[in-house]
């Protein structure tokens, strides 16, 4: 127990004071099997990455707002990338769900959660807002109704700092 507490305190201290927040250039796989690099989206402006799954109820509640932000801020350079971590068991549901909801944001697949792990995701949903220089500006785990207010405030600040 003592070792556990000590490890946790040291890491928390290091993370709070000196953690760096740059994302690596990651390859993302579209539903049609083709790959793109994250940097291609960052050239245009800030990027909001959302990790979700078709079996995740809070994820689906939050997606309504992701679609709203994509439509509202895409002209200002924002890209919303929804990365599904559905495994082979439910991956066939992804396109039909997005289509039924008429969502317009970009959707990618991460069936064995390797992109999620690279970006230090743990819970569903995980949202990561990345500035044009690759710095993580804000991140959030889970979704409680009302969280979208904070998300929009962060997006506004990000697009304003870009323009």
């Amino acid at each position: 127990m003592k070792k556990w507490i000590l490890i946790s305190v040291l890491v928390l201290l290091a993370s709070t004071l000196y953690g760096q927040n740059k994302v690596p250039d990651i390859k993302l796989k579209r539903m049609n099997g083709k790959s793109v690099m994250l940097q291609d989206f960052l050239k245009k402006g800030p990027v909001l990455i959302n990790f979700w799954a078709t079996w995740c109820a809070p994820c689906k509640k939050e997606m309504v707002y992701l679609d709203e932000f994509e439509k509202k801020y895409t002209d200002k350079g924002l890209s919303v990338l929804a990365i599904s971590i559905d495994s082979q068991k439910s991956i066939s549901h992804v396109r039909s769900y997005i289509r039924a909801k008429k969502y317009s944001f970009d959707v990618f697949l991460d069936p064995n959660s390797q992109v999620l792990k690279k970006l230090n995701g743990n819970l569903m949903p995980t949202d990561i807002l990345i500035g044009q220089d690759g710095t993580i500006l804000w991140r959030h785990n889970g979704y409680i109704p009302g969280d979208e207010k904070k998300m929009e405030a962060e997006i506004k600040a990000a697009v304003q700092s870009t323009s």
């Binding site: 490890i7 890491v11 201290l13 953690g19 760096q20 995701g121 743990n122 993580i136």
Partner: peptide, 26 residues
């Protein structure tokens, strides 16, 4: 040893081009 590891982490993030990030789940 823990303290030494922490100092190394601080030095590498402060003064090198190497960047790191991570997550703790307990």
């Amino acid at each position: 040893r823990y303290f030494f590891s922490f100092i190394i982490s601080f030095w590498t993030t402060g003064y090198c081009q190497f960047s790191f990030s991570g997550a703790l789940t307990t």
